[in-house]
């Protein structure tokens, strides 16, 4: 018997009564198993391909397409796509492909950075609340609820209005705005993650394998780091991907309202904002910027779907 290893995948009949069917499993790590399941989600795989292409394009594109983003050419204003300007030009005759690639860097970077911040803060708050219970938990959850109940957009605008100039002085216009936007967006998106992590902790800490670790004499830190956290992260990663999309939209919104990056720094939202006055004469301008945001957000959401299937703890168990 030592050589035979098998698990029981659950085949659920219509009645919802699981019937265990013995089937063999190759030697696979949970990570590879998740990848196998992710691959089955075709739309997610396609989306991952699209997103990867976009990232590669915005990172390496400017190295190949060496047109500067701010070369003004009044002779080529609002031109439709052509060989000289594959995505056309804007009202100052600036090349849109170059601006889109540059803007993509910022938009995607904002998305990823804001997500990272939301996930890190949320996980920290949720984990502390989940471990401590009692007063600390109540306090942290009160804080979470408080943040959830704040009117976000007005507050966002107020904070940016108040701190934009002082931060610009310290870190320069681009970096200053970047930090501010990331902190503001991330700072308003950690609450769902915190709640999720706390709920996960509450259920996981009652699980037998955590109790086993406790019985072995594992410290609280060890229980959390080795046993609870790795099993709690699946849903957090899924929530995180959705946060990337939300942060990209939030940045676009801010830029569209003229409160994001300064006009000379193109982001997808900023490009869309600038394009809105020329929708009738130069629809391509808005179309490419809007399309890029749409495609990125849609892809990320589908990737999130795929990850949810792949990391579903019920299936990993």
């Amino acid at each position: 018997m030592a050589g035979s290893t098998r698990a029981s995948p659950i085949v659920e009949p219509a009645t919802g009564v699981p019937i265990a069917v013995a089937a063999p499993r190759r030697h696979v790590t949970p990570g590879r198993e998740a990848w196998r399941r992710f691959r089955r989600h075709r739309l997610a795989v396609l989306s991952a391909g699209i997103l990867m292409t976009m990232i590669v394009a915005v990172v390496f594109g400017p190295l190949i397409w060496r047109v500067p983003i701010n070369e003004i050419d009044f002779a080529a204003m609002l031109e439709s796509p052509s060989w000289a300007h594959p995505l056309g030009t804007d009202d100052l005759g600036q090349d849109l492909l170059a601006r889109m690639m540059y803007g993509g860097r910022i938009s995607l970077a904002v998305g990823l950075a804001a997500m990272t911040m939301a996930v890190v803060v949320g996980t920290l708050v949720g984990a502390v609340a989940g471990v401590s219970r009692g007063r600390v938990d109540a306090g942290l959850m009160w804080l979470t609820d408080l943040f959830l109940s704040l009117p976000q957009l007005p507050l966002l605008l107020l904070i940016i209005y108040l701190f934009r100039d002082s931060l610009k002085e310290v870190a320069g216009p681009e970096m200053g705005t970047f930090v501010l936007i990331v902190v503001v967006i991330g700072g308003f998106r950690w609450m769902p993650v915190a709640r999720l992590v706390r709920a996960q902790f509450f259920s996981l800490r009652e699980r037998d394998f955590v109790e086993a670790a406790r019985a072995l004499g594992a410290s609280t830190l060890r229980q959390v780091v080795r046993h609870i956290l790795p099993n709690a992260l699946g849903p957090v990663i899924v929530a995180g991907t959705i946060d990337v999309a939300a942060a990209i939209i939030a940045e676009s919104t801010l830029s569209f309202l003229g409160l994001g990056f300064p006009p000379d720094i193109p982001t997808w939202g900023r490009i869309l904002y600038d394009a809105k006055d020329y929708l009738d004469v130069a629809p391509h301008w808005a179309l490419f910027a809007g399309g890029a945001i749409f495609l990125a957000v849609l892809s990320i959401n589908y990737i999130g779907d795929g990850l949810r299937d792949a990391l579903d703890p019920r299936r990993v168990m």
């Binding site: 290893t5 098998r6 698990a7 499993r25 696979v28």
Partner: peptide
Amino acid sequence: HMRRYPHEFS
């Protein structure tokens, strides 16, 4: 069996 994961076992 050492390097295997629990789900591979009966």
